[in-house]
Simulated assay, not measured.
Amino acid sequence: MFHIGYIRVPRSTWSVGRRFYSSEIQKKTIGFIGLGQMGYPMAQNLHKATKSTHRFIIYDNNAGATTKFTSSNSDTKAVSTPRDVAAESDIVFTMLPASAHVRAVYEGSDGVLEGVTPGVVCVDCSTIDVRTARDVAKNVEAKQAVMLDAPVSGGTPAAQNGTLTFMVGAPQSQFEGVKEFLQKMGKNVFYCGENGTGQAAKICNNMMLGICMVGASETFNLGLRLGLEPELLNKILNTSSGRSWSTDTYHLVPGLNPNVPASKDYEGGFGVSLMAKDLGLAVSAATEVKSSVMLGSAAEQMYKIIAGTEGYEKKDFSVVFRWLGGEKIGKGKGK
Rank of each mutant, 00 (worst) to 15 (best):
S99G: 07
C125V: 05
T29S: 06
N259T: 15
N73W: 06
V168Q: 12
S297Y: 04
E24A: 11
I57R: 06
S318A: 14
K277W: 09
G215C: 12
M302P: 00
R243F: 00
A86W: 04
G227P: 04
Q37W: 00
G269N: 02
G271T: 08
I4C: 11
L148R: 08
A43S: 15
R131W: 06
D248F: 10
Q37Y: 05
N73I: 00
S246V: 04
V260Q: 01
V146H: 07
A65M: 14
M95T: 10
S74L: 09
M1W: 05
L182N: 11
R322C: 00
I305H: 13
S263K: 01
K68P: 02
Y191A: 10
E141S: 12
A285K: 13
E267Q: 15
Y191Q: 09
W14F: 12
S99D: 14
G186E: 11
G296E: 08
V146S: 05
A98T: 10
C212W: 02
V189E: 13
V16Y: 05
G332E: 14
F175V: 09
I57A: 05
F175D: 08
N61Y: 14
T94S: 15
W245F: 13
V112H: 04
D149V: 04
F2K: 11
V146P: 01
E180D: 09
R243E: 13
L46D: 12
T117G: 10
A299W: 08
V146Y: 04
K179S: 13
Q44N: 12
L224G: 07
V120T: 15
F270W: 05
E313H: 12
L148F: 06
N45Q: 12
Q301S: 15
G280A: 07
L233P: 04
A98M: 10
P97H: 08
V140E: 01
G330I: 00
K184F: 04
V92N: 01
T219A: 15
T117N: 10
V85M: 02
F317P: 03
I30H: 04
K315D: 04
M38E: 08
A201Y: 11
E313N: 12
D265E: 14
I4S: 13
C204Y: 08
I33H: 08
V319T: 14
G17C: 13
R131P: 00
T165N: 11
A159T: 10
N206W: 07
N221Q: 04
G162W: 08
G334R: 00
T156L: 09
A276V: 05
K179E: 15
Q199E: 15
S23K: 13
I306G: 10
T197H: 14
N259H: 15
M147T: 04
L228I: 01
A158Q: 11
V253P: 01
D278M: 03
K264D: 15
G5C: 09
A282I: 05
F190R: 13
V272G: 10
V140M: 01
P258E: 14
S291H: 09
E180H: 12
T247P: 01
E114G: 03
P258V: 03
A63Y: 00
